[in-house]
């Protein structure tokens, strides 16, 4: 037998014995990852892109820096309007993303659980992550379309939204103001309602239908 194949077999057995405890523990008592971790992992597993450490050509860095300066300058004049018109959360623009933070909410814990009511046609509720002040529900449709509804009851939260490939628009939907970020295949909506901060992320491989997104937002209600 080839020594390398032998090494793989012998060492493989040792590794199996070494990890038996970890595997058994994971099966017997599945670890509940923190919401922050799940959020990062979902972002990674949806996009297939590592969060940091991207090598970017210098020319692109210069373009991004120039764009960021322009955006920040314009924000200096308009930030007050944006803050007040987005119905209760602060919007900060960075080079490659926009951050929503400090939502003006009144609930400090989840008292009523919200969801998409009814679950949109073709979707199934896939996974729920729940803590005292946070609920995140994933809905999937086939292998290519996903909705992620987040409900937060703590004002000490922030959410990042990519701003490189789409546009931000405000919409009045059922009496609430919603900030929607749209790209060709994704949408992210954020708003405050009934004392909570909500966001709804939509990802697909096909073109986003804004009317459909508005329907999803309208269907968010106490389950």
């Amino acid at each position: 037998m080839n020594i390398e194949a032998l090494f793989l077999e012998v060492y493989g057995k040792r590794l199996d014995a070494e990890f038996a405890e970890a595997i058994a523990a994971a099966e017997a008592e599945p670890y509940r990852f923190s919401p922050r971790f799940e959020e990062r992992m979902q972002a990674l597993l949806q996009s297939g892109r590592p969060a940091a450490k991207r090598s970017v050509p210098i020319r692109r860095i210069l373009w991004i820096a120039a764009a960021a300066v322009l955006v920040l300058c314009s924000l200096a004049f308009t930030s007050k309007r944006i803050r007040s018109s987005v119905a209760g959360f602060l919007v900060q623009v960075f080079g490659d993303h926009v951050e929503y933070s400090d939502p003006e909410i009144t609930k400090m814990a989840i008292e009523e659980e919200y969801g998409l009511v009814p679950v949109p046609e073709g979707f199934v509720e896939y996974k729920t992550i729940k803590t005292e002040d946070y609920i995140c529900i994933f809905y999937v449709k086939g292998e290519n379309t996903m909705l992620c509804l987040k409900q937060r009851a703590s004002s000490n939260v922030s959410e990042s939204v990519d701003n490189e490939h789409g546009v931000f628009e405000e919409y009045g939907i059922n009496g609430k103001t919603v900030l929607i970020y749209l790209t060709e295949t994704t949408a992210h909506a954020a708003w405050t309602e009934d004392g909570y901060y909500f966001s709804l992320a939509y990802t697909s491989v096909s073109q986003v239908d804004l009317d459909q997104i508005i329907d999803y937002i309208s269907s968010v209600a106490v389950k």
Binding site: L45, E143, N144
Partner: peptide, 16 residues
Amino acid sequence: LLFLTAAIPGEDLALL
């Protein structure tokens, strides 16, 4: 879930 914006091919992302 597979998505078009992935840095790696869709089938690898599905594996991941």
